[in-house]
């Protein structure tokens, strides 16, 4: 499916989505409150069938955080990038690990590195960092006087 056809299909699922083009793939901006029901439909829809979440990460833009989900379909071979803009002080978004199981580990990593809370995640603990670690290392304002080497 090409970008124009994808746009029509995605707008049918959720009228409030906005699109950005110019990169390699179609970027889809979704409100965090709409994300979970939208994600369920992305996987369930036979025409779209986004079954492969191959990258899940977060970007700190200093004023807000952006969740980035790279989704692709192993059947139709089309790819989209879904983005959710989150508030920086209390970032909360619904988990998608019941739809794509790989999200469980990736969300735990984003949780400890960026401090994003994933609602209804079955096991939201620190994965890579020690349990008593303070702060979110991949945020832009993170300071560590002992371990951090500044170039």
């Amino acid at each position: 499916m090409d970008n124009e056809a994808l746009k029509i299909q995605l707008t049918e699922l959720l009228p409030s989505v906005t699109f950005e083009e110019g990169g390699e793939w179609l970027n889809v901006n979704v409100d965090p409150n709409d994300w979970k029901p939208f994600a369920v439909k992305l996987k369930a829809s036979a025409e779209l069938y986004f079954d492969y979440l191959f990258c899940l990460t977060c970007v700190d833009w200093k004023t807000h955080l952006t969740m980035v989900y790279h989704l692709s379909s192993t059947k139709h071979r089309h790819t989209i990038v879904v983005k959710c803009k989150l508030d920086r002080t209390t970032p909360v978004v619904e988990t998608v690990c019941d739809i794509w199981r790989t999200a469980e580990f990736h969300e735990r990593e984003v949780f400890e590195m960026f401090g994003v809370e994933f609602k209804n995640h079955p096991d939201l603990r620190k994965l890579i960092l020690p349990a008593d670690w303070v702060g979110f290392p991949l945020r832009k304002d993170y300071e560590d006087p002992i371990n951090m080497i500044k170039l």
Binding site: F54, C55, T57, H70, R101, F105
Partner: peptide, 16 residues
């Protein structure tokens, strides 16, 4: 780079 993410194969393979 402003932000870089490495989607490593081992991380996802371990999760199963």
């Amino acid at each position: 780079p402003y932000r870089i993410k490495f989607r490593s194969p081992g991380f996802s393979n371990l999760s199963c």
